[in-house]
Amino acid sequence: MKLTHRFPPHIRSRENNVTVMGDAVLALLPLYFMACFFYGPRAAALGILSVLVCFVSDLLCQKLAGRKIGVIDLSPVVTGLIIPLLLPASIPYSIVVVADLFAILVIKQPFGGLGQNIFNPAAGGLAFVTITWPNLVFRYTAPFEKLPLFGEITARLVASPAYQLKMGGIPYRDFTDMLFGNFPGPMGATNILVLATCLIFLVVRKSANGKAALAFLGTVTVFAFVFPRIDGARLQSVFYELCSGILLFGVVFFLNDPATSPKREASKIIYAAIAGAVTMLYRYFGGFEEGMVFAILLMNAFAWGIDMCCEQWISRERRKRLEKKSEKL
């Protein structure tokens, strides 16, 4: 009877890396259906291309770094799925490829690959592309314009509500339009209801933290309420700040990215609150119309510091409690 030695505990939960990453992929797929519904099959083509590029480059880097390849690793698939969703459907294919390569080769792999990366690769890739081609990235086609799969895009390019907010105008969109996302904007970030359901799905599956999402949205509403960009109408400005741009998408996917957010629950909430404030800072004073991507990159650098301070504070509380308990005995 050949027996193997294993360390306790001898039973393990059924979840493994593939199922955890699978939840994120599952949460992303409905956004692709909505994008295909609005903008035609071009959205799916962009998604497939981006996933392929990310997967192949990630594999090459791991082989270069000499790590054993054999374990199915879905994290490049998640990065590949996120990047086209935040770009307009009419974006040329080459820009998506550049964003993917930058995300994997520069932001993810040098820091050590899967669990060690400090910055969110999708956010980094998008930031690079926004800086290099700002006019291409912030020009959106109106929904329900079927775009050709290849070849020239002749559709009319319009500015998104976030641009109008930045310019001080009021994006006159009625309530239901904003919720269902039939207004010009990034491919996956406009349909608010689908995003909300994805958030609830991830919270239930425990790969997203509900309190952190609430903290982020709370700071954003406070900022939008106290300093409205639309003069006078405070509630309206709160609604438009939340629905325009990639804010809700960022809450669901950038804030709960496992590798780059802090680990302890308390520091996740603090991290989300500060991220909300920094995002609004980028929107008010930033150079670009949508600063969420840069804010997330900046906040990832703080994540480790916030976690260490929280650990120090909590261990001090714990020691005080232990002393009190030992005195009582």
Partner: peptide
């Protein structure tokens, strides 16, 4: 974190500062 051997030390810190300056560049825009 276990950074690949080639990137240990100076290179990885430079890339780290580069990505941070990418983030702060979002504020300037030009």
């Amino acid at each position: 974190s276990n950074v690949p051997k080639v990137f240990k030390g100076l290179p990885i810190v430079l890339i780290y500062i580069g990505i941070l300056s990418l983030a702060i560049y979002g504020l300037i825009g030009h």
